[in-house]
């Protein structure tokens, strides 16, 4: 008969080994692809891919936030609402967008003035979502359904023929207003 201390040690070692094996197995077989936090952050970002945050797209910014390298208030299209959601997700303190950052711009898409386009392909190279079609010395055009309105194609155009136009209001995208609550005259 082993002394009780040894029995206890053996049992504990046995449990530790069994659990370690189970954890090791789980780590290999149920491995999560990618960083789930990055995915969660990326899901909140508006996917405009405009780079105004200082990163080359929404995913890179999400990675920077996840690694603690970037603040949560750099995304202009996401606005204060987006910054708040990000702060909530990460348990960080909410910081509003830097003063002067334009927020609440109506959704707009790029439009090429096809008569002035010289077919230089510079805008095609700038577009982060490949929403511009055209070829060298051919007229280019923006597929407006795919355009995110990031404005990245505007500066490279040598003839300044790209403009951002507001999305037209249609009965499909028109929204009912928040009901006006009747104000009561008290005095």
């Amino acid at each position: 008969m082993l002394p009780p201390i040894l029995t206890a040690l053996l049992i504990m070692t046995g449990i530790a080994l069994a659990l370690g094996a189970a954890l090791g197995y789980a780590a290999v077989h149920f491995k999560v692809e990618g960083n789930p936090l990055v995915e969660q952050i990326d899901a909140i970002l508006p996917q405009t891919q405009c780079g105004q945050c200082g990163y080359p797209g929404c995913k890179p910014y999400a990675e920077a936030i996840a690694s603690g390298e970037a603040e949560t208030n750099l995304c202009t299209p996401g606005g204060d609402d987006g910054a708040r959601t990000l702060a909530e997700l990460l348990g960080r303190e909410f910081k509003p967008l830097a003063a002067g950052a334009v927020v609440e711009k109506p959704k707009a898409v790029a439009l090429i003035d096809e008569a002035s386009c010289i077919g230089c392909t510079l805008c095609i190279q700038a577009c982060p979502v490949d929403a511009i079609v055209g070829a060298a010395r051919q007229m280019h055009t923006v597929v407006s359904k795919l355009c995110t309105g990031c404005e990245l194609c505007l500066p490279p155009c040598p003839v300044d023929c790209i403009a951002l136009v507001e999305e037209p209001r249609t009965p499909q995208n028109w929204k009912w207003k928040y009901p006006a609550t009747g104000l009561r005259v008290v005095a």
Partner: peptide
């Protein structure tokens, strides 16, 4: 109407995400 608009935004965002990833 807000929910419809938001769903549409989400759809556009996931499309943009996929296109950006393919672009990269």
């Amino acid at each position: 109407s807000e929910i419809r608009a938001r769903d549409e935004e989400r759809r556009a965002a996931s499309q943009a995400r996929a296109r950006f990833e393919f672009h990269t």
